[in-house]
Amino acid sequence: MEEGYNEIRELKEMIELCFERQNRLISKLEMELEALSNFNGKQMLDSRDMRLQLKVCDRTLIRWRRSGKLPFFKISGKVYFWAFDVYKFLREEYGTANLPTDTFVK
């Protein structure tokens, strides 16, 4: 009976160590991604970020870009948006007053 408890305790410790290691890796990745998505103190969002954050499809992003409502730029063929422009667009289009106004300096 005691042996079973020891095995369970060892398994629990192993699982906790794995979770701690994963959390450290996730934190490191988040820091690296944050560094990649900032330029001169301004936050950049790619199309994937936009789709996930706004819960819209690619077609919607393309429509907003083509209409000129949402400014964008390309780096090596990949589309990016300045977070400041996205917040401004959302405030203007949808009247979302609770979005940050001065968090990002343009």
Rank of each mutant, 00 (worst) to 15 (best):
W64I: 00
M50E: 05
K106F: 03
K42W: 10
R21F: 01
E32R: 02
R21Q: 08
L29A: 10
A83V: 00
D85C: 00
V79A: 03
E16I: 06
F89T: 00
P100F: 03
L52I: 06
D102W: 12
L90Y: 02
K106H: 11
K55L: 03
V56N: 02
K106A: 11
K74D: 10
R21V: 06
R24Q: 12
G4F: 11
W82G: 03
D102K: 09
E16H: 05
A97N: 08
N38H: 12
D46N: 05
D102A: 13
K106N: 09
V79H: 02
M1E: 15
R65A: 05
G41C: 09
L36A: 15
K55V: 00
E92A: 05
S47H: 02
M1W: 07
Q53S: 05
E10L: 05
Y94K: 00
E3I: 02
E16R: 04
N38Y: 15
P71A: 07
E20L: 06
A97W: 07
Y87P: 02
L36Y: 15
A35I: 11
N40F: 08
F89K: 01
I62V: 03
D46C: 01
F72R: 11
V56L: 06
C57E: 13
Q53A: 04
Y94H: 01
E10D: 08
E34S: 02
C18F: 08
C57Q: 09
L36K: 10
E10Q: 06
E13L: 03
Q43N: 10
K78R: 11
G95M: 13
D46I: 00
L29W: 07
C57M: 13
E30W: 04
L54T: 07
G95R: 10
L90C: 10
K78N: 08
I15S: 14
T103A: 13
F89Q: 03
R59G: 12
K74N: 12
D102V: 14
R51H: 02
S67W: 05
K106S: 12
V105I: 09
E93H: 01
Y87L: 00
E30S: 11
K78V: 11
L90E: 09
R66F: 04
Y5G: 12
M1Y: 06
R65C: 08
Y80A: 02
K42E: 14
R24M: 09
K74G: 06
P100R: 03
E10C: 05
P100Q: 07
K28E: 15
E13W: 02
L61C: 06
R48E: 14
L25I: 06
Y87K: 01
Y80M: 07
W82T: 03
L25V: 05
K69E: 15
F72D: 12
